[in-house]
């Protein structure tokens, strides 16, 4: 597969072809039609500026959706009242209490037997995931989003952030730890209380 054709670089055409789909995708997740419109706009502008990064490995629609997911995480972050500037090295955050001195689990992973089965539950879960990502230190959630929502290789992420690959893996590890814990508390914990 060769790199994306330059002739396909047409943001106005994308708006016509995928605008509605992107809008629906956004509105389900932010529950606000005006915010969803803005997110579509931001996504298309960002896509227009970064078309050279589009590998052509996926469809344009998938690529645009990946960018939109990123914008949704940013949106949730902006909703939060205060947000300090954090250092990429500062990912010890929230990890201290998970293991004891012998490196055994202190906060034991619960049993997630109630995996969400229907679409409604999956959507609710996605909302919680976006909320959890927004609570992470900014660069950590960006690295995680690039990896898990956009499917970037760690080597690409390292290059984008100018960090060593090992550092990148550590950040992803911390992010997965925090997200897992956040979901356990906010989704599976909440469900237990409700039933």
């Amino acid at each position: 597969m060769v790199a994306a054709d330059i002739q396909d670089h047409d943001a106005v055409k994308w708006l016509g072809l995928y605008g509605d789909a992107l809008y629906r995708f956004a509105i389900i997740r932010v529950q606000d039609s005006f915010a969803a419109e803005d997110l579509v706009q931001e996504t298309l502008l960002a896509a227009d500026r970064s078309y050279e990064n589009f590998s052509g490995k996926s469809t344009v629609r998938t690529w645009l959706t990946g960018i939109l997911k990123h914008k949704i995480v940013d949106y949730y972050r902006r909703m939060k009242p205060e947000q300090g500037d954090e250092n990429i090295e500062d990912f010890a955050y929230g990890m201290d209490d998970l293991f004891d001195k012998k490196e055994r689990w202190k906060v034991k992973p619960g049993d997630w037997s109630g995996d969400p089965k229907n679409l409604f539950e999956r959507k609710e879960l996605m909302t919680i995931i976006y909320g959890c990502l927004a609570e992470m230190p900014g660069k950590m959630s960006t690295v995680y989003t690039m990896r898990e929502l956009e499917g970037a290789e760690t080597s690409e992420i390292c290059e984008a952030f100018q960090i060593g690959e090992n550092n990148c893996w550590v950040i992803l590890y911390r992010a997965r730890m925090l997200l897992r814990r956040c979901l356990e508390v906010n989704w599976f914990g909440g469900k237990k209380e409700r039933s």
Binding site: D20, R24, I28, I129, E148, L149
Partner: peptide, 21 residues
């Protein structure tokens, strides 16, 4: 499990009535 949820998060077609104004 979390990865599989994120992988399949493309479901925008369940609200077909909503279009960009």
């Amino acid at each position: 499990f979390i990865r599989s949820i994120l992988d399949h998060d493309d479901s925008a077609d369940d609200q077909p009535c909503k279009i960009l104004p």
